[in-house]
Amino acid sequence: MTNKIMKWVSWSVFLAFLAVYPKLFGIYYTNVFVTFAIFALYAVTLNLLLGYTGLLSFGHAMFFGAGGYGTALVLTHMKGVSLSMALMTGFLSAVGLALILCPIMVRVSGTAFAMLHLAFGQLMYVLSLKLRSITGGEDGIGGFPIPSFTIPGIVFVNMKAPENFYYFAIAVLGASIWMLWFFTKTPFGSIQVGVRDNAMRIDYLGFKVPQTKAVVYIVAGGFAGVAGSISAMFHNLVSADGALHILNSFVPVMMTMIGGIGSFFGPIWGAAIFQVIEELTSRYTQRVELVVGLILILVIMFTPMGFVGILRSIKQKWTTYKIRRKS
C-alpha cells in the first residue's frame, strides 16, 4: 500500500519537476534537456534490439535519419501540414524503411547483423550526400516552417518559442518511451527475450522467430524515426552529418553500454550520463573522441553491465549487509 502511494508521489514530483524545469534552469539547459530526451528515446529503441532481442545494430542512425528527413521534406514541400502530421510522416518513413529492410535483416544475427547495418547505414549516408536535389547534400534541409500546435478554436501554441517546444517534445518523447515500456511488458515482449536467449527453443514452442524479430525491428525503427523527427524540428535542420553519420549510429550503442544493457531504464541513464560527459568535455577539451573511446573501453573492461549494473550490485551488497546484521 505504502509502496503504491510512494510510486504516485514520486511520479507526480517527477512530472512537476518537468513542468517547472524551463522556469528553473533557463533556456540553455532547457535545450540540453530536449537533446537528452531525444537521445534517451533513440537509445531505448536501440536497446529494444540490443538488450531485449540480442541484435546489435551499427546502422540505427538510418532510422533516425529517415524520421528526420521525412519530417523535413514534408514540411518543406507541402503547405498546411499540421504538427502531428509532420511527426507521423517521420514515424511512417522510418517504419517504411524498416519494412523494406526487415526481410533481409531477420535472416541474420550476431556479427552479420551488425555489419549489414553498418553497410546499409553507410549507404544511406552516401546517398543523402549524393542525391543533392532531394536531400540538399552536405547542407541538409533547413529553415522549414515549424507548424503550430492547434486544436481549432480551443488551443493555439506557437512552437517557435523554445519553452513551448520543450513541452511538446517532452510529451511526445515521454509518451513514446512509456509505450515502449509497455511493449516490453506484454507477452510478446517475453517472446522477444526468449528469441535472444534461445531462438531454437522459441521456434520449437511454436512461436515464429523471424516474424517476431521483424515486428521488434519495425517498432524499434519507427520510434527511432520519432526521435529523429523531433530532432529535425528541434534544430530546424536535418543533415547527412548530423543525422546519418556513422558516429550517430555509435552514440546510442555507447549510451546503452554505459547505462546498462538488458535493463529498460539503462539507456536513459546512459543518455543522461553521456550528455553530462559531453557537456563537460566539450567545455574543457576538444578531444571528445578520446574521452568517449576511453569511457567505452573502461566500461567494457570493468563494468560490462553499465551504470545500472553498478546500482544493482550496490543494492545487493546493502541487502546482504542488512541480513547479516540481523542474524
Binding site: 546489435l56 551488425a114 568517449v292 573511446g293 576511453l294 567505452l296 573492461m301
Partner: peptide, 24 residues
C-alpha cells in the same frame, strides 16, 4: 580479458580503441 562477455563486448571495445587511435 573480455572474451567471456561475448561478441557485443568485443565489437564495442574495438570501436572504443578505434576512437582512441583516431584521437591519438
Amino acid at each position: 580479458k573480455i572474451h567471456a562477455f561475448g561478441h557485443v563486448g568485443e565489437l564495442i571495445l574495438t570501436v572504443g580503441v578505434s576512437l582512441v587511435i583516431l584521437a591519438g
